[in-house]
């Protein structure tokens, strides 16, 4: 490979890697969103339980 080809390849790798990082971050955000949503469900359930407990007192 010539020097130009090597640099071209390296540049391409950088682009791919950057794109990978962006996409991975999106996916992580999506993952966080899912987990946060579920955490909220758990929290609400917990509140509901507590309220029931209170009302039964």
């Amino acid at each position: 490979m010539t020097k130009e080809e090597i640099q071209e390849k390296a540049k391409r790798i950088e682009i791919i890697h950057k794109s990978y990082l962006d996409k991975l971050l999106d996916m992580k955000k999506q993952q966080d969103k899912i987990i946060e949503g579920f955490s909220e469900i758990l929290k609400n359930k917990k509140i509901e339980k507590i309220k029931k407990l209170i009302s039964s007192l």
Partner: peptide, 30 residues
């Protein structure tokens, strides 16, 4: 991928290696 001094195949190989490794590490960590 920030490496700007890739001018031979050895360095390119190292870049590939590092990038691949990084990809796996980040995916696993996520």
């Amino acid at each position: 991928a920030e490496n700007k001094d890739i001018d031979n195949e050895g360095k390119l190989g190292k870049l590939i290696e590092g990038t691949l490794s990084d990809i796996y590490v980040r995916a696993s960590a996520t």
